[in-house]
Write a protein that binds this DNA or RNA. Structure first.
Length: 291
DNA sequence: TTCCAGGTAGCCG
DNA sequence: CGGCTACATGGA
């Protein structure tokens, strides 16, 4: 996708030929720091910056930013160089049962998020609902993260760095309502603080190597590891299986899902190459069509 | 009150 | 390996 970026007044406009749906992008369970405004725009924090995003006709409008940041950060973050229309067609062609789900989630894009933030966010996510995950991450950022600025009347904080969280005490971090995951967060923060380059090397390594590294982190199992790979390492084969995906695969695709290698291979065969993106359509459909 | 949530570690056979 | 269970917390 070629995206023309122009500045009009204080706003940056990105021309796009694809259908973009911000609600589907920001509320599909891949990220936890974006909130919808009354005008349907979204405001959020990523990479230490606060921006406001809206969509109008064939363009994305970014407020509180600069041409440089849009070029260097947000274009990549919003995954604007990928052709989702083509990917959708390939996914449906290979597994027609997913057609309705892809139609439902049309406009989703997989954000390219920071590895560290994604790691901690999904450690927190285990065995909890999305609204509570968001609450804990907000509390963590307020309590430990660096202050950024006030935007439209609200104070915004960076996601805490590894060293900021490595200094946290178990009693203090409990105030962020992370429950038993507090010890995981602190231990992983200490690990990454000592060797942060190791985490950031994984996107260049093979799927298997990245998986093995992530599984070595305390509190990271196969599901969380696959979320980290998919949402922050551009490893689009990753297919995280949580309770929603398990139920949806069993209900709509009639396959029994367990932890075995056999099941993993079967799923990979159903959703090859862009499996992680297919997974996201299934997840988003599942959480919005529960019965 | 009980059940559940974008699960994992620890333990046991 | 596969099968159990404890784990914090708030919403339904």
């Amino acid at each position: 996708m070629k995206n023309e970026i122009i500045k009009i007044g204080n706003h940056i406009h990105i021309k796009t030929t694809e259908y973009i749906n911000l609600a589907h992008i920001f509320d599909c369970g891949q990220c936890f720091r974006w909130e919808q405004n009354q005008d349907n725009s979204y405001t959020g924090v990523a990479f230490g910056k606060v921006i406001n995003v809206s969509v109008n006709e064939n363009e994305i409008i970014i407020k509180n930013s600069s041409i440089e940041d849009v070029d260097n950060i947000w274009k990549k973050y919003l995954d604007l160089d990928k052709n989702y229309k083509e990917i959708q067609e390939k996914i449906i062609e290979h597994e027609p049962k997913i057609k309705e789900m892809v139609a439902f989630g049309r406009g989703i894009r997989l954000l390219n998020q920071d590895e560290w933030e994604t790691t901690i966010s999904f450690i927190i996510s285990q065995n909890r609902s999305i609204s509570l995950i968001k609450k804990s991450i907000e509390l963590l950022s307020e309590q430990y993260g660096t202050y950024i600025e006030k935007f439209k009347g609200k104070d915004y904080y960076c996601f805490p760095t590894p060293s900021q969280l490595a200094r946290a005490s178990i009693e203090d971090i409990a105030k962020c309502k992370v429950g038993y995951r507090g010890k995981y967060i602190i231990e992983v923060a200490k690990t990454i603080n000592k060797e942060s380059e190791k985490l950031y090397e994984q996107s260049k390594k093979t799927d298997e190597e990245a998986l093995a590294y992530l599984l070595s982190l305390h509190g990271v199992g196969p599901k969380v590891a696959n979320c980290i790979k998919l949402f922050s390492m551009e490893k689009y084969d990753s297919f995280p299986i949580d309770v929603w995906i398990k139920r949806a695969l069993e209900k709509y695709f009639k396959i029994k899902v367990d932890q075995s290698k056999k099941t993993e291979k079967r799923i990979k065969k159903m959703f090859p190459k862009h499996g992680g993106i297919a997974q996201q359509y299934i997840f988003y459909y599942a959480i919005n069509n529960q019965k």
